[in-house]
Write a protein that binds this DNA or RNA. Sequence first.
RNA 1: CGGGGCGUGGCGCAGCCUGGUAGCGCACCUGCUUUGGGAGCAGGGGGUCGGAGGUUCGAAUCCUCUCGCCCCGACCA
Length: 563
Amino acid sequence: MKMSQLLLPTEREAPADAQALSHVLGVRAGLIRQLGAGLWTWLPAGWRVHSKVSAVIREEMNAIGGQELLMPLIQPRDLWQRTGRDQIDELFSLSDRKSAELVLAMTHEEAVTFHVSQFVRSYRDLPLILYQLQLKGRDEPRPRAGVLRTREFIMKDSYSFDCDEAGLDVSYAKHVEAYDRIFDRCGLEWYRVESDVGVMGGSGAHEYMAPCPAGENEVALAPGYAANVEVASADPTAAKTEPRLDAPLEVETPSAKTINEVSGQLEVDPSALLKAFPVVTDAGETVLAVVRGDHRVNEFKLRAVLGDLFRPATDDEIEAQIGPPGFIGPVGCGLRVLLDKAVAEQQGGWIVGANRTDLHLRGVEPGRDFDFEAADIRSVEEGDLVNGNPIRLETAIEVGNIFKLGTRYSEPLGAKFLDQDGLEQSIVMGSYGIGPARIVAAAIEQNADEMGIVWPKALAPWSIELVALGKPDSPERSAAANLYEELRELGVEVLFDDRDAGPGEKFTDAELLGCPLRVTLGKRSLESGELELQARRESTELETIALDASSAPALVEILSELT
RNA sequence: CGGGGCGUGGCGCAGCCUGGUAGCGCACCUGCUUUGGGAGCAGGGGGUCGGAGGUUCGAAUCCUCUCGCCCCGACCA
């Protein structure tokens, strides 16, 4: 590609509203441009990168027997009513001129299951893996960070169809294989972590996380362990509890409504306190969740334990059912008490709210002073132990997920088959997503320096940026043009900077765009008979090779050695 | 949905408080010079100041409404 003809609007300054590095560099390097909130155009260079990701995904999906198809983005709403997913707030809704109700698909379970239910009759038709690279629409409450969270984006979504759980396990394992290879090939640092299965249930789920500062997720990591903090479990550090007492002792804590205020007044460590978190389930039950004062309730884990959605109780509800907000506790509260394991498994006297204004209780012991169910309902923290190793927390971008759906969609949509015994069974499904745009963003976040992007070789829009110096029509320019043609004939993807611009501008743009290898040809090259090479990843190292008929093949060789 | 911020030429911004000819840098066009790290000189083009209404002799500036965008939080099947 000749740069003089390429639409590559590079910017010297960052867009004023950009925060995330991938957003800043994506715009500055001329890869993406915004059309509206959460609506982004992929410009030619950016689309090349996106396409590279898609190509890697296709190869690996095909390698596990996936078959590519394409389903509509716009879908009839009634299909979504059949699975109940029409109730999702994020579902983009619209209607046509006849007032027919339509939605923009946020994923394609309904559509693919609808079709499969028509085609699959027998266990002989299974298993099946179908996938597509197609737009998804989401009415996001808050799009953000450039291409990281948008209202419309391309997703690789695949769906597996099996006779039974054992078959699903095989399809799931195939996806693990394919995904591991995809993220490796894209040059990402990534973790496969245990993840929340959500309210819809499902028997297992993992997410692929690419660590970087712009991420929206947090992962807990220890040797041999990786989990989304939403579901992570770990052994707590010990609480600094007070000595045991024969019976709870009332203690005055005027106006102390927070853990910090109470621990300050009583001069004890926050971990010696218990924090009471009253919630009301969808079913209408008020439950008191209790964790250590220095811990936080994990709402995902609590939801899993409750088996129901819930919301925090309002101050009025707390006042009416338990006691004065700020002074509530499990002793004599009359509610079902879920006590976090970290508390249940440590002996000692705890400090809790007395359910009376300005009073707390000291020396409280679970079991003796209140009934409880023990459950793991707290969020893990940096320093907690897994198999004796301390965990660390990292922010990360979710770049992919794999999910065992079971019969969540096949049942409502009637996707059944006859098994070997002639019995009708529901198809057992899995669904698997990858966001190519997020891979692009993560690759930028993980591979950039103060000058710009440093593409992993597999994602670079071009392998080589050939910078021609000197005046137009000069001998060095025509030598560069010749080299450009030779490289093209060898099938090298080369971006030829043939613009009538100064060397500084060309070098700066090359560093911004971040192609793996920069080749410079100027008057100097003609005089010395040498080309200058610079690997983007080691931007200070200059190398030279002979400028002659061997140059192009030599560059191909050098490229193959780059990462 | 709660809180905060911003809309002035393609990009980044000043001007607004205190109403009076719409400005700066970069980019762009023409000519000449320049060509190994964002060049110089000269000339030039481009803006419904997000939109609507109002106050006023006069509104980018003051008032009301509205649309859009960004950030924090909530949410994220």
